[in-house]
Nucleic acid binder design. Structure first.
Lengths: 202, 202
DNA sequence: TGTACATCAGTGAACGCGCGTTCACTGATGTAC
DNA sequence: TGTACATCAGTGAACGCGCGTTCACTGATGTAC
């Protein structure tokens, strides 16, 4: 198992293409293995069919690749949430669509999602050096959509309610991946239950 | 940095003591680093002040140590939940205490908690070989306490409601650790909100 | 149209590292006589 | 009470591995003249 594919050399000026291939391969590796540490330069290189040092033309070090993968994942999620919201006019329908899209994304790329929202180590590390880093702010951005949608639906205590909904969505997304053997209710059922009970300020 | 402490040789028949020290050191390492892969035989040995091969008197391989740490964590959590529940007679107070205890444990040992309930890789791996493994069943055990407590409080749809509560607790526990920069509500507030809205079948 | 050359995309060999694990061992200690 | 010995707890050196990263390089390709 030396190389999965033989890589075709890019043309003059198109070297940047390899950058995308590297990020895509890293994301695929992360999704397949579910292990951030399994995403090594050498495995990425092997998957693409290039030599490992070629990566250094595009990234200063391994960590930069991981960060690029995270940035891509967050951008995807954000785009999906945005699209889901725009598809409806009614605030309640928007909220439903938002939750649905959130869980669908997490189910489609479970490990990318888990690493993106659960990488305690790097968050802990980077939080010491530079608080409010990319991850935190983009996580906050995804969250702010939910806050806004929930605020539109229910007049009272929007922040706490939104936190409760987000927290439950994240918990469902995480646990269905971590403990698949459990008899989980359907996505739609849990969303209906959550939204139904949460949005009413009785 | 060769050895943190010089380890005193155990007396004849008391060799089993080292086993506990190994598990404790591994748990401490996991909690400090937040990274399962940082728990290496050599680091454990260094922390205790023994030679790395000495570990093989007590564990067949590295994986067995990690499993022992997980088993200990689950046992602790279960004992804590049990104690919280026994401290009250009223079902509603029991439920509150249970949720409180759950979140307190997760806050005290955040990384142990996260790895125990979020180790997607090993769960994925072992689920292939032996479905319904130790982790799953013990996770289910912790969960079944919640189901029982919630069932006692509310007559309708206990399973889905219990899932919603557990899922929200897990999400809160995970995200407060992963995204500490966020303006999280207090533990008590989120519990009151959850229990209050969830247990009423309107 | 031909040719020299700068540049760009990518390579192969090598480095030092920490790791899990194996092996043959050492030396203290309790026990049998 | 003394001593030989089996056993138990733990060791030091070594192995092969995959890793991130560095280095001097190769060879195709577009461009200037």
């Amino acid at each position: 198992v030396t190389a999965e594919v033989q890589h075709r050399r890019n043309k003059r000026g198109e070297g940047a293409r390899l950058r995308e291939e590297i990020v895509a391969a890293a994301a695929a590796l992360l999704e397949q293995t579910g292990d951030e540490d399994a995403v090594t330069l050498r495995r990425i290189a092997r998957q693409i069919g290039i030599a490992a040092p070629s990566i250094y033309r595009h990234f200063p070090d391994r960590d930069a690749i991981i960060k690029a993968v995270m940035a891509t994942a967050f951008a995807e999620l954000d785009a999906i949430l945005d699209a889901a919201q725009r598809a409806h006019d009614d605030p309640m329908q928007q909220l439903h669509a938002l939750c649905q899209a959130y869980l669908t994304y997490a189910a489609d790329k479970p490990h990318c999602y888990l690493v993106a929202f659960g990488r305690h180590r790097t968050t802990a590390r980077s939080a010491a050096n530079d608080p409010g880093s990319m991850e935190d702010s983009t996580a906050a951005q995804a969250f702010n959509r939910l806050v806004a949608a929930i605020t539109r639906c229910s007049p009272g205590l929007p922040h706490q309610t939104a936190v409760a909904v987000w927290v439950a969505l994240h918990g469902y997304a995480s646990l269905t991946t971590s403990v698949p053997a459990f008899p989980w209710p359907e996505r739609r059922q849990i969303i209906e239950l959550l939204v139904d009970r949460m949005h009413r300020v009785t």
